[in-house]
Amino acid sequence: MTIDVHGHVTPPELLKRFPMPPSLGDIDGMVERKAALGITTTVVGSPVGAGTMLPVPGIDNYAQSADSLASFHDWVAETVRERAGRLAGYVYLNPLEGSAAVARAAELLALPEFVGLIVNSSVRGEFLDDPRSDEFFAMAAETGAPVLLHPPAVPVGASSVKAVGAIEHVARPCDITMGVAAILLAGRLRDFPGLKLIAPNAGGALALLAEKLDMAQRRDGVEGPPVSAQLRQIYVDTGTPSVTALRAAAEVFGPDRMLFGTDSPPLATPLDAALGAIAALGLSDEDTAKVLRGNAEQLFGLDSANELRRAS
């Protein structure tokens, strides 16, 4: 029994409007493929709301109306209800948008279909160390909702990278790295101690930068516990094909902070390979069970009782 904390779905009308992978609309196919391998539940959402992760001239993912986002979340909730126990939902918002967006997200979190928040690790080139994110972090800490810090469609530095593949598989993990580092160095975990942050893609390069983060902290005179120690408060998902990166994550973040995630759909990495990468880490049976299910059960409240509650 395995929980995947990182999957994406898209309404049919958006698939018609934007050039996105068709797998984002094949929800039943996704559920069946995962179930065949023992992946029983996937937490799904969109890192762009009613937008698109592929660059489209004239489309600004952060210019969505409240009505369009409400319609999108209505569809996500219905999709989760129709597959109760198989899916759970993320609420999307722009964490720099202000009070109204934060209040709408908090209302959605009160619904049983939604178990977490999904936001971008940077917004229009700005990281979440900006004071405008204070209301968002306060709400996330107060509700206890896990926050998946997903890279945006246009990560920092994308304008300097010409190949789409390099943007997807190099620039976005770098955005995760820099975005989480900015949050830690800004003292967000100190100011909002209830935060539950998830860095996807095994945390980008954070596992390799612990000592460097401490040097940056000392250089800038940032108060608080060493950033390297704060890394143990960050959750990471396993959505990377690199076993080397996963081993580093297990050492730096610890098995108690690792969550099985595939980024599928749309990522086409074979699901059996994603499961095999966890087996290749050589963790104890107890720690392997935590990575595959136990940590997510505890973090998202996805134990059997809650699954039955949502199903009813």
Rank of each mutant, 00 (worst) to 15 (best):
V222Q: 10
A158T: 06
S228L: 04
T2Y: 09
G58V: 13
L197S: 04
V123N: 07
S122K: 05
L197V: 09
V9W: 10
D237Y: 12
A210F: 00
Q298C: 14
G179C: 11
G51R: 01
V5T: 15
S23T: 14
V56F: 01
G116D: 00
P22R: 15
E286D: 14
K34Y: 02
L185I: 13
G51W: 07
L184R: 09
T177N: 07
S228F: 01
L246W: 02
G165T: 11
K196R: 15
A207N: 10
F260S: 11
E168L: 15
T40P: 00
G144L: 12
A106N: 05
L87A: 04
M139S: 11
V227R: 02
I39R: 02
A158M: 06
G49R: 02
A140S: 11
G194H: 01
Q230R: 09
M30I: 08
G98C: 13
M178H: 06
N295M: 10
G224C: 06
G29K: 14
A163C: 02
L271H: 05
L281I: 08
V291M: 10
D256P: 09
R257Y: 06
D74R: 14
G25D: 08
V222L: 14
D4K: 12
I183F: 07
L281V: 09
P193F: 00
D28I: 05
L15H: 03
T143H: 11
G294L: 06
S65T: 15
S46T: 11
S71F: 00
A311S: 15
R86M: 09
A277H: 14
G165I: 04
A171R: 07
V123Y: 05
N201I: 12
V227D: 03
L195V: 02
N201M: 15
A280V: 01
S159P: 02
R309E: 12
D26F: 04
F253Q: 08
G58L: 13
G187T: 10
P270G: 10
I3A: 13
F253D: 12
L24S: 04
R83A: 04
V76R: 00
G89D: 09
F137D: 02
V31T: 12
D134W: 09
R172C: 11
A171E: 10
S159L: 03
P265V: 00
A273M: 11
T42I: 08
V180W: 05
D129E: 09
D191E: 10
A171M: 13
E82F: 01
A50E: 00
H150Q: 12
D130S: 14
H150G: 11
G51N: 02
S46F: 00
